[in-house]
Write a protein that binds this DNA or RNA. Structure first.
Length: 491
RNA sequence: GGGGCCAUCGUCUAGUGGUUAGGACACCGCCCUUUCACGGCGGCAGCACGGGUUCGAACCCCGUUGGCCCUACCA
């Protein structure tokens, strides 16, 4: 109970970094931060056929973009390096440790060599299933057919199976799901190490085995993972016991489903964290939206009661995070809510914070030449947007001359009645907000127009359409000379 | 087939025996307005079903239905 808090996120690099995984990582991260503990990133690449270095890199970069910095784990982009005292943090680089542990179990007869071939297993399986029963290695209808007692010849290639307890229940005290009991007899002697090409050698250990060895070695105190792992836990618990390892606490977080309740997949739009980055979401918004799926922060025991209270900073989340407030049921991912949160967070951010995030979405070379005042104006003028993509889009007029014009709007707003006023605008020198406002007051007065009349006409001439930020800011952003050029062609 | 998990508005959820079932997103309407937005105000909308227990069930028990997970020499 006095164990220092250590959590870990252990993705397998078999594809993109899925937002479901990011959410799990986020919970681990929040929990560690909350309790002043450490957060570990560990790469589970024992599936040789599907793991790639590219995928490892994508995971590392995705995590970094999302702000989920790890205290221990691989160094981005360099497989030979890592930070932390328990490395390496890629499982394929930890084979010696696993093999030693497998050997330990073998020596104590807690595990045994199984040289049944896949073909043989398959035929036994179908025989048992034909009898309407479940195939479990060396259990039930299959009992006594296993090779536990024979073929101990270490010179033959064989898989290694772990002797599971028989009878009674295996109990899991889950911090989120509560107590879950599994009949021990519903599990069989599972494989902890695959057979090797080389006879007599111990092959690559499997997931459920490596997890136990690593979580113990890395001193993980709280195993927080997706609830698709609930059924793996009763396999792992006896293994901890066999090693004499202390059991970590377990917390299985519910899945994230798509809009239609099915497992979140490409079909629902974006699943990869990289895509959210490209869509112009702030990492802070992604963190908030993900955290709020299945978790209800409680302020003094009460959930949020206003929209404002829904918008939490990282500090708020860390302060409020509690596994007891995590839902047991799966949640559906709602893009609309993410958008709304993104908008709120954009509104709250300072222009300087936003600049760094917006830059990749605008012409960077031009952007970099602009003054701070210009950038600040550009950002504040578009801070009502729902995404960085939207902000950049509504700033296009500032970077390029419109090529096409909304004809109907042009006809409606650039009339003979406003052209004289437009001519006066051409003469203006001072483009500061206050000067423009004073000048416009006079122009409108002299021509008997409303600001709306002049503003809309200018918008069409400047942007090609009757939509833009506030007109004085729009003019400032376009720049005096360019305003003259764009307006003159209409007179 | 076996084992496990889950079930409140369309979505995220509050709720732990007595509430007009509360909030947020989305949607609809109105207001504001220098366009588009932002913002403000208001509205629509829910306890999966069936049995119990109880004076009284969204809350407790059983069943049904539905969804998901595991059942690999994947993770």
């Amino acid at each position: 109970m006095t164990r220092p808090v250590v959590t870990r996120f252990a993705p397998s690099p078999t594809g993109m970094l899925h937002i479901g995984g990011v959410r799990t990582a986020l919970f681990c991260w929040l929990f560690a931060k909350k309790h002043g503990g450490r957060f570990i990133l560990r790469i589970e690449d024992t599936d040789l056929s599907r793991s790639t270095d590219d995928n490892i890199r994508i995971i590392e970069e995705g995590m970094a973009w999302c702000g989920l910095e790890w205290d221990e784990g691989p160094v981005v982009g360099d497989p030979s390096k890592w930070v932390g005292p328990h490395g390496p943090y890629r499982q394929m680089q930890r084979m010696d440790r696993y093999r030693a542990k497998v050997q330990e179990l073998l020596d104590q007869d807690l595990a045994y060599r199984c040289r049944c071939s896949r073909e043989e297993l398959e035929s036994r399986r179908s025989a048992v299933e034909a009898a309407g029963k479940v195939f479990q290695y060396n259990r039930g209808l299959d009992a006594g057919k296993g090779c536990a007692a024979k073929h101990h010849d270490a010179s033959e290639s064989a898989a290694i199976r772990f002797r599971m307890p028989e009878g009674g229940d295996i109990v899991l005290h889950d911090l989120i799901k509560g107590e879950i009991r599994f009949p021990a007899d519903s599990l069989d002697d599972w494989i902890i190490a695959r057979s090797s090409e080389t006879p007599g050698e111990i092959g690559v250990p499997t997931y459920n085995f490596c997890v136990v060895v690593d979580d113990t070695h890395m001193e993980v105190s709280h195993v927080i993972r997706g609830d698709d792992h609930v059924n793996n836990t009763p396999k792992q618990i006896p293994l901890f016991a066999a090693f004499g390892f202390p059991l970590p606490a377990f917390a299985h977080v519910p899945m994230i489903l798509g809009k239609d309740g099915a497992k979140l997949s490409k079909r629902h739009g974006a699943t990869s964290i990289t895509e959210y980055q490209a869509m112009g979401f702030l990492p802070s918004a992604v963190r908030l939206a993900l955290a709020r799926l299945s978790w209800t922060p409680k302020q003094d025991g009460k959930a949020a009661e206003t929209a404002e209270e829904e918008i939490l900073t990282d500090a708020d989340m860390i302060r409020l995070f509690d596994l007891a407030d995590v839902q047991k049921s799966a949640a559906r991912f709602d893009m609309d809510k993410l958008s709304w949160m993104n908008q709120k967070l954009i509104q709250r951010a300072s222009w300087r914070e936003l600049e760094h995030h917006l830059r990749p979405f605008v012409p960077e070379v031009v952007w970099d030449e602009k003054s701070d005042e210009w950038k600040a104006t550009a950002i504040t003028a578009t801070q009502k947007g729902k995404s960085l993509v939207e902000m950049a889009e509504s700033l296009r007029f500032a970077f390029e001359r419109p090529e096409t014009f909304d004809e109907a709007a042009a006809a409606k707003f650039i009339t003979d009645a406003v052209k004289p006023a437009l001519r006066e605008v051409l003469a203006l020198e001072d483009y500061s907000h206050d000067a423009l406002k004073a000048a416009f007051d006079g122009i409108m007065e002299r021509h008997g127009l409303k600001l709306k009349d002049v503003a809309q006409a200018l918008r069409v001439a400047l942007c090609g359409r009757p939509v833009s930020p506030m007109i004085f800011e729009t003019m400032y952003l376009v720049g005096r000379d360019e305003v003259r050029t764009r307006v003159e062609k209409w007179l």
